[in-house]
Design a protein around this nucleic acid. Structure first.
Lengths: 213, 213
DNA sequence: GAGTAAAAGTATACCCGGTGCAGAAATCGC
DNA sequence: GCGATTTCTGCACCGGGTATACTTTTACTC
């Protein structure tokens, strides 16, 4: 068995296969019966793997779900780093979010595909998953703060403050959208309002809460 | 056994005593050995109560610690509601936070009493407790948003956005202070810097991130 | 291509947080 | 005192997660 083909050896390929097998078995069962209603033992059995092996791939039950979102954790930070020269970080983030709305990126909360909605519902119904998402937010804040420090040489504290505000606002927008779709509003119908709300929110971020009396 | 004394009957008094007995046994053991190193069974034994009874008083292990902070969850909201007429909500929150700094209120992160510091360390060392604190933040956001809606008739979305920003910033300030004290800086020495940072942070909230390039 | 070190997987037993249940014990109201 | 109600308890159980000791599989080398 020469390595004529791609780089990864048999071992790596097998590992990858088991990993996706476990993940897919998990998602399937969780979507069907709910996160709390399915035990990891059942997932392991469905994936034809021992419980111990499952935990070798995913450190906790929650990771079976959230590992798919790991990439988004640093997304805002990447957007800030990759922004065109002489562009304010906030502008870059806003444009990125608006683009997400146009593309119905699930992370904006504006995607009403049944799969996405069911996933959303599943997460909201499981407190431990919600808590895990919060940790995600924290990670995004740290990554963004670092990006701000490094690309806009913002002072330490200012970077942290700006980061937590930006992440919090973006999260709130997404939640608001998702909430409305959960109530049955179609994404295409919500789109205009979502854009207006986003623009309002980013304007608030840019100009501050000073107007509030 | 007449009820010559105060109102609460024997039953209520006993319940209250058991409750504090459990809580204090828990805090003592947790501070001494660490949250994860002590099992609820040990806490129950120390409080001379069955495990089942412990869970009748505190729904989860984490609650043994966090129930003491329950009051702070709605603190910001109360401050906003109780603000003098014609005062901006943000002003009220800022003044309250500055007062907290002066009084070394533990919630500002500027209290270096050994007890407080050990508690802080204990929480940070236990992921499940950190997660629980996040839920606290969420509760504070909701309460504040409602207060803004009701006392400044801020539109729904604006209230939510302002609330998440304010809570996030205040939390970040407290964390920054606590972090520095954890490094050994005395509270009295940190005080001036903490005030300056807080004023900077609230100015940022008021005037927005527009200056950021 | 056989042999072997290293890696991956398994079975089993265990710890801990949390719950259901059935009955004992304490408190209350009269 | 006495019955009704509440509280407490012991025990068995579930599910997530880990330790240990063992077998299987892959990779490397001659």
């Amino acid at each position: 068995m020469d390595a004529v083909d791609g780089k990864p050896g048999l071992r790596e390929r097998k590992k990858q296969r088991t990993r996706t097998a476990i993940s897919e078995a998990a998602i399937t069962l969780f979507l069907e019966h709910g996160f709390n209603q399915v035990s990891v033992a059942q997932v392991a059995e469905a994936a034809e793997v021992s419980k111990r092996t499952l935990f070798a791939y995913f450190p906790t039950k929650e990771d079976l779900v959230v590992h798919r979102l790991a990439d988004h954790e640093t997304e805002i930070a990447r957007v800030v780093r990759a922004r065109p020269p002489r562009t304010a970080p906030l502008t870059a983030v806003r444009e990125h979010f608006l683009q997400g709305l146009r593309e119905r990126d699930p992370i904006t909360g504006l995607n009403d595909h049944p799969q996405v909605r069911r996933l959303h519902r599943m997460i909201l119904d499981a407190p431990s998953l919600v808590a895990r998402m919060e940790r995600f937010k924290t990670g995004a804040e740290h990554a963004l703060a670092q990006a701000l420090r490094e690309t806009a040489d913002t002072p330490e504290l200012t970077a942290r403050l700006a980061a937590v505000q930006i992440v919090a606002v973006q999260w709130a927008l997404a939640q608001d959208n998702a909430e409305r779709l959960a109530y049955g509003e179609p994404a295409d119908e919500r789109y205009a309002g979502a854009v207006k709300d986003a623009e309002h929110a980013f304007a608030l971020l840019e100009n501050g809460l000073g107007r509030l009396t």
